[in-house]
């Protein structure tokens, strides 16, 4: 049984069909990279998976249970699905430590001491244990995104979603974040990540999903898709990202 099963999802904003019959299974431990042009529906797909958006048709099943529409069942489910956004959105008025312990103490009802131990653990995973008492404004963008990853990991999620988390960063900061993602993938975390880092997608993903006009246009092992795109759309997309000056 896949950990996450999307079947035939449709999502509209007004008359704009943003997700068109999207189906996707994600197995435990699988790393799925989602690529596609701007506006192809990648962000919307992730937001539907953790219930920030509702779907108009189709079903989302996580761990054998359909995604609840709201209320305490949805909150309960969100404990198991971590997400890191493109925008830097640590809580600016809380220290790094508090940013991380807030979820475990509030949602998972852990005692503060235990949550602090977890904070130190997850900060180590992103190589930032020395920033425990810093405030977000004192960190670089790359460090902020790594803390955001740590904040999500502290909930001990079973699925992690990443939405282009390096695209707001200066180029020289991308590497440190990608390194953390690769390590996380190696550790067996189930991940769905939207990315523009093609090298990273090729190296790390088990499955590559190419979205186009709200559809899963092509899907398969990244090497195969990159080497031999079946559709002209993917071919031109790959060419565009590999040779951006064309």
């Amino acid at each position: 049984m896949p950990l996450l099963a999307l079947s035939s999802i449709h999502k509209r904003y007004g008359s704009n069909l943003v997700l068109n019959d999207v189906s996707l299974d994600v197995e435990t431990g699988e790393v799925v990279a989602v690529i596609g042009r701007s506006g192809s529906g990648k962000t919307t797909l992730l937001r539907c998976i953790n219930g920030l958006e509702t779907v108009d048709e189709g079903s989302i099943v996580f761990d054998g249970k359909p995604l609840p529409p709201g209320g305490s069942e949805l909150r309960e489910l969100r404990r198991h699905i971590g997400i890191v956004f493109q925008s830097l959105n640590l809580f600016p008025h809380h220290s790094v430590e508090r940013n991380i312990t807030l979820g475990p103490t509030t949602t998972n009802k852990l005692p503060l001491l235990e949550a602090r131990k977890i904070a130190l653990d997850v900060l180590r995973e992103v190589d930032l244990e020395d920033k425990l008492h810093a405030y977000p404004s004192q960190l670089s963008g790359g460090q902020q995104q790594r803390v955001a990853i740590a904040r999500a990991l502290a909930m001990r999620p079973r699925l992690m979603l990443f939405d282009e988390i390096t695209s707001a960063l200066d180029p020289e900061l991308v590497g440190e974040v990608v390194k953390v993602l690769e390590r996380l993938a190696t550790s067996g975390m189930t991940m769905v990540l939207v990315t523009h880092e093609m090298g990273f997608a090729r190296r790390t993903a088990d499955t590559l999903v190419f979205m186009h006009h709200g559809r899963v246009w092509e899907k398969g092992p990244p090497r195969e898709l990159f080497a031999a795109p079946k559709t002209p759309e993917l071919e031109s997309f790959v060419r565009a990202v590999l040779e951006p000056n064309d």
Binding site: L52, S87, F91, T106
Partner: peptide, 27 residues
Amino acid sequence: VPRSQIEAGYSLGFTRLQIFRHIIVFP
């Protein structure tokens, strides 16, 4: 308070009141 801050709260499984208390009030 930016929408993205509030969504970060929802993603951590917070209720509206918890979001208000931990994320919104101080800023």
